[in-house]
Amino acid sequence: MLEVSGLDKRYPTGDHALRSVSFTIDGADAVFVIGPSGAGKSTLLRCVNRLVEPDRGTVRLDDLDITALAGKALRDARRRMGMIFQEFNLVERLTVMENVLSGRLGYVSLWQAWRRRFPPDDIEAAFVTLRRVGLEGFENKRADELSGGQRQRVGIARALVQRPRILLVDEPTSSLDPRTSEAVMALIVGLAAEDDIPALVNIHDVPLARAFARRIIGLRDGLVVYDGPVAQADAAVLERIYGGAILAETERSGSGPL
C-alpha cells in the first residue's frame, strides 16, 4: 500500500511543482497520473523514492515512512520500489545482463558489484526476468545495440528483478513509436498484475491511459484535480485537467476525440 499525503515541493527556481498532493494506492492496481507537461507528474514520482526531496508531506510504503529515512535505510527502501524511465536510462556501455543485475545492487557488497559476482539466485532471477520481458538470449548484448522498445524491456526487467513492492513508471512510452508503446504498456501492466504489485504510472498520452487504466489521477499545476475511475473521467474532467489544451493534446497523440 502506498500512502501519499500533503506532499509539497517548490524548486529553488520558484516552480511550485506539487501542492499538497494526497492519495492512496491500495491493492495491486495500476494507477495512471495524467496532466499537461509541467503539471508535476515527474516530480511526484521522484518524491516517492526521494530522488527529489519533498519540502513537506509524507510518503508511506506499507508500514514504512519513506520521508523519515536517510542513508542506508533510504537505499534499502529504494530496493523495494522499481522505477522505469522515460529515456530508459540504461547504462549504455554495459551488457543487458549487467543492466538487469544492477537492480540487485542494493543486496550485494561493493566488492561483489565490482567483480560482477552476484549470488546465483540473482543471476537465475535475471535470466527468468529477461525471458518474461521477451529478451531471452540477449544477456550479452550491449545496451546501446538495442532498439528503443528492447531497451525499455531491459528497463522493465531491471525494475522487476528488484522484486519491488511497487513500480514507479515515468512516461514509459514517450520515446517510443505508437505500436511499441502499446506493447510496452501492456507488458508493464501485465507483469505488475502477475506479480501482484501496484504501479504508479505517469503518462501524457490520454488514449493510452484510457486503454489500460482503471483509476486515473489528474494533476494540474501541482494540484490533484481529479482522482477516480477512468470511466467517470469524461470530457468535463479532462477539461479541468488540461484546460483548453486537451484537444491539441489528443490530436498530437494521433487519435480522434475521446
Binding site: 530522488l51 529504494r78 530496493r79 524511465f85 536510462n89 547504462v91 545492487l105 542494493g106 528497463g155 514507479l168
Partner: peptide
Amino acid sequence: VEAVAATGAS
C-alpha cells in the same frame, strides 16, 4: 546515474 541510484545502490 539516477536509474542506478533508484535501485537502492550505494
